[in-house]
Design a protein around this nucleic acid. Sequence first.
DNA 1: CGCAATATTGATTCCGTTCAAGGGTGGTGG
DNA 2: CCACCACCCTTGAACGGAATCAATATTGCG
Lengths: 232, 232
Amino acid sequence: MEQIENCNPCLSSINRLFKTLNNEQSQYLEEQKICNEYKKGSILYKETSRIMGVYCICKGVLKIYKTGSDGKEQIVAFARSGDITGYRSILSNEAACTTAEAIQNAIVCQIPSNVIIELVKTNGNFALHLLKLTCRELNQANSFIKDIAQKTVRERLAETLLMLEETFGVTEEGYLNIILTREEIANIVGTATESVIRLLSEFRREKIISMKGKQLALKNKPYLQKLSKAFN
Amino acid sequence: MEQIENCNPCLSSINRLFKTLNNEQSQYLEEQKICNEYKKGSILYKETSRIMGVYCICKGVLKIYKTGSDGKEQIVAFARSGDITGYRSILSNEAACTTAEAIQNAIVCQIPSNVIIELVKTNGNFALHLLKLTCRELNQANSFIKDIAQKTVRERLAETLLMLEETFGVTEEGYLNIILTREEIANIVGTATESVIRLLSEFRREKIISMKGKQLALKNKPYLQKLSKAFN
DNA sequence: CGCAATATTGATTCCGTTCAAGGGTGGTGG
DNA sequence: CCACCACCCTTGAACGGAATCAATATTGCG
């Protein structure tokens, strides 16, 4: 991690949430923020660590995960350009309950807690927007609880692949615009690494996906959607 | 469901959230609310249904669940006296994504959407309180994702039993202050009904719990805590 | 009292984990 | 520049936890 000059004007231009601010508030935010650069693999915050402000991602991707008692990670979200993270702990004034790790080199601004809390209290639209954001995450989390409890690993993997394409898009050649290790995919799906490897190989043999190293391309999305029982 | 006169003054007295309101706002809320009585087994709202306001539980208990494609329920929360539910859909202006069903006879007030949204916009403390509420739920949901992905059914059942005691307390005789079917317990844990029955019998044989019909009493909480790997 | 819902127990199957061994890849430093 | 090492990927084999199927028993409500 290394502090950098500025990433102007990252906040209001990238992040929808901060579009609810008026000029004065926007400017104050830009003054208060601190920009940092993080190398791939570095940790922004850990479970149990106290964090001093909300993180706003300008560039790069973070994985947000919880660590089980045996050390295995469960990825519960990604944060990419325009996303914010860490606000849960700030609002509850509690220690972080997830770990945030850069899976690409990233530029991230930090906004002090009191600034965020003040905004919630004084800007109704900001509060409402943040609430909606949280509610969406909550709904996704609840959906995933149902999925992980009721679907097979094969179904959840299909769902995860679709989610990754939805979230990160595809390159010109049609590959998912995100590079993950097999282990990380397993930590999203909630299964063993070997199971992911086996199932990806199956998908490839069945021409449902194609692979070039860690790059994945979805070749038969209708099948994946049917398999994942989308919208359930 | 049957409309009733009033449950005065349910809101401000029972619900912490509404304690953030001033007198004027409180009174307005009392005027705007509609009180209903629901028999055990009745549905307040369903997945995909549009709801017109936030539900505030005065008396009784609701289970909040999602339904899988094969019809199996996954319980994601309970709502009891003093809790509110349905606010996610209201705030996002989306159809409900869960079903709420009374598992006891219940008295529930409904507060129109626009009243809630107005409060979020104009009362900073109300917004902040609601945000904290949502964040807590989100954290619980994420924890449960990790648990269901990494723990055994036995461990999750132990955790669920502790959660039920924490949430609903115990009767004078030491039984959990909530009556659930085995199937409902299975739908919390995320497993098959038969597995819950088998494991509860095991727990009884091992003197970890005692049972009288649907009533359950935790006899060896330290063991359950150790088993559930609490705080992980 | 009788029926429907719920609970219980046993037998069997199977999905997914775990353990093990080997091959590939990329990054770093000499 | 390339050799080495750490990390990652892959495949096979065996085990086991939990689901499913099946056959009663019990409960409780109308």
